[in-house]
């Protein structure tokens, strides 16, 4: 188990290198550069060069990349060109907002998704199953900016229950969490329902029925444990979604977060910030996948055996 974990960690290193190279290249491919934002319209070419030299942007890309990578390996993501602060500080300042939104949305969609999925599986084939699953599907398929605006209209404007936007008090979190979470609810409910239905058809369940256990007892005592496996895997894969997938929702609700930091900086071509955010997100997802796999291993001896 430990050996497996260490091996997986070592395998992350080449991934990190490849990711950093691609992130760096992609960011520099975007037309325009941060100097445009520091100059008054119509500034002279000399002035441009002077500034480019100041931020090392006049060096060959390979050199810029090597310098950035070297610093990044020691945890230093450089200094923002436009925002004039260490990138690490900027990320740390925004991370709590992303985590608050992402984790609450994850919690919300897991709790609601598993409950609804399990209920639908319990009543599989009934009208309840169909109506609930179709309703959730429909909700999750609406574009989130649209859903967000609708939520604001209903809950903030008409009912006055929550603030329209911002992140100044905790109740400002509720509407964004609902907006982000509903997509997760549908996904998790579907996975849960399918897992329950499938496990229910397996031999051991038939055996339990034969032994005379009630349906309710089988459901809660035996099915739940088996059916939650795929849910855990899905959750591991959702780390990127927690950290950066809420860009649209952050925009609609004018919330701080890694997504908005990334979009603002992309707009201003603040290279170090964009690179830092993308690298963070990418590595976060890789680690999330790893943790998801390990959690699955811990729960399922069959997977554990395969790993050793």
């Amino acid at each position: 188990m430990l050996g497996y974990f260490v091996r997986r960690l070592i395998m992350l290193l080449p991934v990190f290198l490849a990711m950093s190279a691609i992130v760096f290249l992609i960011v520099h491919l975007v037309p325009g550069d941060p100097i445009d934002h520091m100059l008054q319209i119509g500034a002279s070419a000399e002035r441009r060069q002077e500034l480019a030299a100041k931020f090392g942007l006049d060096r060959p890309l390979v050199v810029q990349y090597a310098l950035w990578l070297k610093a990044a390996l020691t945890g230093d993501l450089g200094e923002a060109i436009i925002l004039k602060q260490p990138v690490v500080d900027l990320i740390l300042a925004n991370l709590p907002y992303s985590l608050a939104l992402g984790l609450s949305a994850l919690l919300f969609s897991t709790v609601v998704g598993v409950s609804v999925g399990a209920a639908a599986a319990y009543f599989a084939g009934s009208w309840f199953d169909r109506v609930v699953m179709a309703g959730i599907l429909m909700g999750s398929m609406l574009p989130s900016f649209w859903l967000g605006l609708l939520m604001i209209l209903i809950f903030a404007v008409e009912l006055g229950l929550f603030p329209v936007s911002g992140a100044r008090s905790w109740d400002a979190l509720v509407l964004p969490v609902l907006t982000v979470g509903i997509g997760g609810v549908a996904l998790i409910a579907r996975v849960t329902r399918a897992a329950f239905v499938e496990v229910a058809q397996q031999d051991f369940v038939t055996l339990l029925h034969a032994k005379g256990l009630t349906r309710r007892r089988i459901f809660f005592r035996h099915l739940v444990r088996h059916a939650l496996m795929p849910v855990v895997t899905i959750l591991g894969l959702k780390v990127g979604w927690i950290l950066g997938g809420a860009v649209t929702v952050e925009y609609v609700f004018a919330r701080p977060g890694l997504g908005s930091l990334l979009i603002t900086s992309l707009g201003q071509r603040d290279y170090p910030v964009v690179q830092g955010c993308l690298l963070m997100l990418g590595m976060g997802v890789m680690l999330g996948t790893l943790v998801g796999d390990l959690a699955q291993a811990a729960m399922d001896p069959r997977v554990r055996d395969r790993m050793s």
């Binding site: 990711m19 990127g240 979604w241 950066g244 997938g245 860009v247 649209t248 997504g259 990334l262 993308l278 997100l281 990418g282 997802v285 890789m286």
Partner: peptide
């Protein structure tokens, strides 16, 4: 590409 949300 799998590592990043599609929107990003």
């Amino acid at each position: 590409t799998w590592a990043f949300p599609e929107i990003l």
